[in-house]
């Protein structure tokens, strides 16, 4: 899994490439924690190059949402493939996360 970062206005975007699974979720969590040190109003995770996510990845995402929202900031997920989106749908996460 590779992660690159970009900023646009007040948005901080993490572009993830690869699989988010039991072995890569930890580094995703670390990268997100490091990203939150930056100043932004919205943290966006770009899923356009994510081809797989399992429950361990979902936990990282939901933990991030809690932290970001607690800090009064916004959190968005974008460009999900149908396969990845279906995992958010079947667990009910689509209803509590902003997915664009």
């Amino acid at each position: 899994m590779n992660i690159t970062k970009t900023t646009k206005d007040y948005d901080f975007v993490l572009h993830i490439e690869g699989r988010i699974d039991i072995f890569t979720s930890k580094s995703l969590a670390e990268e997100i924690n490091a990203a939150t040190e930056n100043k932004f109003s919205t943290l966006i995770i770009d899923f356009s190059k994510v081809d797989y996510i399992s429950s361990t990845g979902l936990r990282v995402i939901i933990d991030t949402k809690k932290k970001i929202n607690a800090a009064g900031l916004k959190f968005e997920l974008t460009n999900m493939s149908a396969g990845v989106k279906s995992v958010f749908d079947m667990t009910g996460f689509s209803g509590i996360l902003k997915i664009t």
């Binding site: 039991i22 797989y52 429950s55 149908a82 396969g83 995992v87």
Partner: peptide
């Protein structure tokens, strides 16, 4: 099909976890 492969991998990983 690709989505079936995805589901097989996902079930297997979830079982293992």
């Amino acid at each position: 099909p690709k989505n079936m492969i995805y589901n097989i991998l996902l079930i297997t990983e979830e079982f293992l976890s």
